[in-house]
Design a protein around this nucleic acid. Structure first.
Length: 306
DNA sequence: CTGGCAGCTCGTCAATAGGG
DNA sequence: CCCTATTGACGAGCTGCCAG
């Protein structure tokens, strides 16, 4: 019973790795029979596809590990054994469920383990994103209203009038944070507002009034995104009791962090799956080479025997 | 053109692990 | 014990495809 590949991962291997992986999925989708391994620097295998295209596959397999799937998944064994225990009914349902729910080590850990054995394996880095550095101490302590745009970006407005666009997917791909300073459009505002621009999106205007309206525009598309008031619009009007406000703020921050975490987790998962796919491709090639080698040796041996 | 369907992405919740 | 990070599960929304 092999539960090492979850249905989701399995699905990803089959069809869901999606558009963004097309560039290097060719390694995994290539017919193994039409691929030749060229060798290369340690840890990196150059694979030639049938169409002559050369592909560098980071040598996930070069490390002396028994299996791609078994090696990192310490808890896989655990899951399997628990599944075997199930007929015994030796555990309560709750306990079973808990154990079944027990996770693999994180994708980052798995890949980093792999990479420690094989230095060529790309590590999933702790991404120190600039936008996290951008948040100043003042902002962190001052009550902040957080809004979500229709494009999924976040704007935090603190008492200090700092507006931050939190990282969307674009921010991950794009560059670092940019900062601009504009005059405040709030009647009560300070002289200036700071706007942090992420992922090529910029804050174009902030209207005055009790409930400010913002317009986000992507320089490329020119499309304006309206802003959904995702959280605490009441902050703008009558201030709620400080306690409620604190709770709301705490929740908003938690949700925002979790949103980011989920995004990051999915990204890592994709990377992990991609890595496994590469490894499968290389293993298949290696297997094929070994078979051919064995065949050749057999031939030689048969000739000598005659 | 339209309704149904499948696949994908994203946000959220909840469970769990690990660190301080 | 509390807090934070991680990740599976679930639902909602979007998109592309296809048959009628």
């Amino acid at each position: 019973m092999d539960t090492s590949v979850s249905p989701q991962l399995d699905g990803s291997l089959k069809d869901s790795d999606g558009e963004e992986n097309h560039s290097d999925d060719s390694s995994s989708s290539a017919d193994p029979a039409q691929v030749s391994v060229e060798g290369g620097s340690p840890g990196v295998t150059v694979v030639q596809l049938s169409d002559g295209q050369m592909l560098q596959v980071h040598g996930v397999i070069q490390a002396p590990q028994t299996s791609v799937i078994q090696a990192p998944s310490v808890q896989t064994v655990q899951i399997a054994s628990v599944a075997e225990l199930e007929p015994n009914q030796s555990e309560t349902d709750t306990q079973k469920r808990r154990v079944l729910l027990s996770r693999r080590p994180s994708y980052r850990k798995i890949l980093n383990e792999l990479s420690s054995d094989s230095p060529a394996v790309a590590k999933i880095e702790e991404e120190k994103m600039e936008e996290e550095v951008v948040v100043s101490a003042a902002e962190a302590t001052v009550p902040t209203s957080i809004y979500q745009t229709s494009s999924g970006q976040y704007i935090a407005i603190s008492q200090g009038r700092a507006i931050q666009l939190n990282p969307g997917v674009e921010a991950l791909q794009g560059g670092g944070a940019q900062t601009l300073t504009v005059g405040s459009s709030y009647p009560t505002g300070d002289a200036q507002q700071q706007i942090f621009i992420q992922g090529g999106q910029m804050l174009l205007q902030a209207a005055t009034g009790d409930i400010p309206a913002y317009q986000l525009r992507s320089p490329n598309s020119g499309l304006a995104h309206s802003i959904m008031m995702a959280a605490s619009p009441d902050n703008m009007q009558s201030p709620p009791p400080p306690h409620t406000e604190a709770i709301t703020l705490k929740r908003e921050v938690r949700l925002m962090k979790n949103r980011e975490a989920a995004r990051e987790c999915r990204r890592k998962k994709k990377e992990y799956v991609k890595c496994l796919e590469n490894r499968v491709a290389v293993l298949e090639n290696q297997n094929k080479t070994l078979i051919e080698e064995l065949k050749a040796l057999k031939d030689i041996y048969c000739h000598k025997a005659e």
